[in-house]
Amino acid sequence: MKNKLIAAPYLVWMVVFILVPLIMVGYFAFTDKEGNFTLDYVADVAQYSQIFVRSIWLAAIATVICLVISYPLAYILTGFSKNTQSTMLMIVMLPMWMNFLLRTYAWMTMLGNNGIINTILGFIGLGPFKMLNTEGAVVLGMVYNYLPYMILPIYSVMVKIDKSVIEAASDLGCNPWKTILRVVFPLSLPGVMSGITMVFVPAISTFIISRMLGGGGNLLIGDLIEMQFLGNAYNVNLGAAISLVLMVIILLIMTIMNQFDNDDGAVLL
């Protein structure tokens, strides 16, 4: 129990498989193919600023939509009885347990020009609309895939709010709307913050959703990285540089988020 050595195997593992690989990303980002120091690749990332902006923009839209959908949903869930709550939560979370490639594939088949949505619209004389391979489809895919990541943290913070605090607000003159605004919302803020990061981070770095639903024309940061490592563009140094920039962006965003939330991160999962 008092023996710290018991952590030793993990510490070795951590250094070799977490720390060293991250250092290697940094190393490759700042060296050329011969291993000489260079800033070229990091500077090259600037060429792709359009893709960075698009990624941040689409991920931000998806995050906002997720928040708008999830917040009322989480609030509604907390209103049910204990048993109904756990059943409803299971039903809401269940699609998340399907592999996300399959979930994305489902939308791919539905959004196509002769997919089921356009067929149904055709019956009432509309369309066909081009839905697949658009930015809208990418955002839709992000919302669909990551919605549960927003619902869960908000719900789990909200459900812990002391009932008597809500009663106190009512006692002190708040009608139901004012209670939500002045008490429930501020108290659920840590959940909102962790929901935002849990949606934004995978959304900004995805390459599956953009590839399957966005076609070739809507590249995101994730696609760019993937292309440098496994695609035709093979360029490990550039890939590492892009990864590094992505990490920095995310760390910055997380730091900003943490400003709102001085909790000790207990609501991460």
Binding site: S164, E167, L187
Partner: peptide, 20 residues
């Protein structure tokens, strides 16, 4: 009549202060 329209106030058992 809901609590917020009543001219009474309550001191709750475990105080129910607003933590934020």
């Amino acid at each position: 009549l809901p609590p917020y329209k009543r001219n009474v106030n309550t001191v709750f058992q475990r105080y129910a202060l607003f933590p934020h």
